[in-house]
Design a protein around this nucleic acid. Sequence first.
DNA 1: AGGCATGTTACAGG
DNA 2: ACCTGTAACATGCC
Length: 289
Amino acid sequence: MPELPEVEVVKRSLTNKVQNLIIKKVKIYDDRLRYRIDKNKLRKIIGLRIEKIERRSKFLLFFLNKNIIMLVHLGMTGKLFFINKKKNKLKTSFYYTIDNEKDHKYDRVVFFLNKNQKLIYNDVRKFGFIKFLDKKNYNDNLHLKNLGPEPLKKAFNLIYFRQYIKGRNRVIKDILMDQKFVSGIGNIYANEILYLSKVMPFRKVYTLRESELKIIIKYIKSVLKKSIKFGGSSIKDFSSSNGKKGSFQEHFKIYGKKDKTCPNVNCNGKIIKSTTFSRATFFCYKCQK
DNA sequence: AGGCATGTTACAGG
DNA sequence: ACCTGTAACATGCC
């Protein structure tokens, strides 16, 4: 589930819970994530305090004391659970509910914190990972060094957009999902943004008019912000529900709506799904040009 | 059974 | 060296 809004929601919900807590112990149930967890480095974080959490693109950076950063990526199915035993009830750090055994089937790493509290890294598909970086040069890290600007910051603007696409022979949807262009947009939000912008996903970037670039930027910012406000999107995860779940999926215009009628009231077209390029692509022939 | 799924990276070819 | 597209990773669900 995690694109920028979901990761931002995780960061916000987790910050007030784990900030200033000490990592007392770590238990690994499965270290074969996307990268095998470095146990030597893992040993060194015992006793360290979580100073703050930051988000960069879809990555979470846990700043620990002693100049160590724990870099976490959720991949496709990674989740972080925060559990407060004191309340005798499992609590989520995110918008997933974990109140039964089944939810713990894919726990991979458990961080034991003060006062019987735990932070759990859970990941069905194991596309996510946990790495430890040195604070001094963490920006040179493989995963962070080539990231484009944050879409919600001022540096991501029309001048940058125009400059980046100059001389490029790619379609707009691929560019939006290209983390070197802008960081944090994935397949779901790329579909939503282009529908709202009334731009066909497979338009080559050199055919886009200035006015269209402006509209795309506008919707990139507004869609991501709105999703954060709604707690991100929780799709395929409706099992139980006394924890906080995101609800932005209820506001999807087009993602996952194959064969449904276009949400534009002045249009009775059907939403098309294509998988012939860049993952599942949804669009309306009538509304998007 | 086969296809599909929210992501990233290594690699091949131009 | 840069640009682009594709395969691969692991697992569950429809």
